[in-house]
C-alpha cells in the first residue's frame, strides 16, 4: 500500500474517531453550559458518555420485525461518520477525492433520511408526526446549507471541499463568505436539533418524535449520530468559512479548529437555552428568510465580492 493511501486511511480514522469520541464530550460541555444558564450545577462533563454507555446495555425493544428498523440507526451513525471523512478537520478532507460539496449535502441528508425511515418503521403515530416534521425542517434548512456551500464553490471556482478551504485561507474573507457563514450558522441550529428548532423531537409534544419507540443501543446510536452531526457541521462551518489562522501544521490547525468548533457550539447552545420551541411552519418561514440571506451571499459571490 502506498504512503498516500496509508495517510488517507489514517486521516479517515482520525476524523471518524474525532467525530465519534469527541461528540459526547462537546455535548457534555453544552449541557454544562445550559445548566449554568439555568443557575444550577449541572451534570458532570462525562455525563453523555455515561448516558451512551448505559443505553448500550439496555434492552432493545422493537415494535417492528423489519430489518430496516434494526439496522437503520447504525447506518445513520455510519453515514454521519462518512460525512466526517468528507469534511475538513484541521486539514483537507481525507476522502475529498471521493466526494465534493454536493456529496456532503446529500450524505448529510442520508443520515436524516435513515433517521426518518427508522421513525416510520417504528409504527408510532408520534414518530410519523416527528418524521414528517423532520423532513419539512430538512426541506427548509438544506437549501440554506446548499447555497452557502455553493457560495464557497463559486468563489473558489471548484466543487472540491479542500480546494475551497485552501482558496479561502489564501484569499481572506470576502463579503459573500461572511454573509454565507452567518446563514450557515443559523442553519447549524436546526442541523444540530437545538431549540428553537428541535421541532421533530419535541419531547413535550410528541414524546421525542422519531425517537419515541427507540430504546437501548439503537437510541444511543441515533443520539450519538445527532451529536456527531452537530460536531461535523460545526467543523464544516469553521473550516470553510473561518479557516484562519492556518499554520499548515496539522496538529496545531486541528487544535485551533477544535477550539473554534467549541466556540460555535457554545453560541448554538446559548441560543438553544434562551428559546422556546417554534412550530414547524414558523421554523420553515424563518429558514425561508435565512435562505434569502444565503442567496444574497451567492449574489455577492457572483459579482465577485
Amino acid at each position: 500500500m502506498s504512503n498516500g493511501a496509508l495517510s488517507v486511511l489514517g486521516l479517515c480514522a482520525v476524523n471518524v474517531l474525532l467525530a465519534l469520541l469527541l461528540a459526547p464530550l462537546y455535548e457534555g460541555i453544552l449541557r454544562k453550559l445550559r445548566a449554568v444558564i439555568h443557575s444550577r450545577q449541572g451534570p458532570p462533563l462525562t455525563q453523555s458518555y455515561l448516558d451512551l454507555l448505559k443505553l448500550l446495555g439496555k434492552e432493545d425493544l422493537r415494535t417492528s420485525p423489519g430489518a430496516l428498523y434494526a439496522f437503520a440507526p447504525a447506518l445513520t451513525l455510519a453515514s454521519v461518520l462518512v460525512l466526517a471523512t468528507l469534511v475538513p478537520m484541521g486539514t483537507a478532507p481525507p476522502l475529498g477525492f471521493a466526494g465534493d460539496i454536493i456529496v456532503i449535502v446529500y450524505v448529510a441528508a442520508v443520515s436524516a433520511v435513515l433517521a426518518i425511515l427508522t421513525a416510520f418503521a417504528s409504527q408510532s403515530p408520534y414518530a410519523f408526526v416527528g418524521g414528517s416534521r423532520e423532513m419539512m425542517l430538512l426541506l427548509a434548512v438544506e437549501p440554506v446549507v446548499v447555497v452557502t456551500l455553493i457560495v464557497g464553490a463559486v468563489n473558489a471556482g471548484t466543487l472540491a471541499t479542500g480546494d475551497i478551504v485552501t482558496w479561502h485561507t489564501a484569499n481572506g474573507p470576502t463579503i459573500s463568505m461572511v454573509v454565507a457563514s452567518v446563514a450557515l450558522f443559523l442553519a447549524l441550529q436546526a442541523q444540530a436539533g437545538k431549540l428553537p428548532f428541535d421541532i421533530p423531537e419535541a419531547d413535550q409534544e410528541i414524546m421525542g418524535g422519531p425517537l419515541v419507540e427507540l430504546s437501548g443501543a439503537r437510541l444511543a446510536l441515533l443520539r450519538w449520530a445527532l451529536w456527531a452531526k452537530q460536531l461535523v457541521f460545526a467543523f464544516l462551518l469553521v473550516e470553510i468559512f473561518v479557516p484562519w489562522p492556518s499554520t499548515g501544521t496539522y496538529y496545531i490547525d486541528l487544535t485551533l479548529a477544535l477550539a473554534k468548533v467549541l466556540l460555535v457550539l457554545i453560541l448554538v447552545a446559548v441560543v438553544d437555552a434562551v428559546n422556546p420551541r417554534l412550530r414547524v411552519e414558523q421554523a420553515m418561514r424563518y429558514y425561508a428568510r435565512v435562505a434569502f440571506v444565503s442567496l444574497s451571499a451567492l449574489a455577492f459571490a457572483v459579482i465577485g465580492m
Partner: peptide
C-alpha cells in the same frame, strides 16, 4: 408552560 414549549430556562428560573 415554558417547559411545554421547550423553554427550559424559564422553567428553571421561575421555579428558582
Amino acid at each position: 408552560a415554558a417547559h411545554i414549549v421547550g423553554f427550559e430556562t424559564l422553567l428553571m428560573q421561575s421555579w428558582r
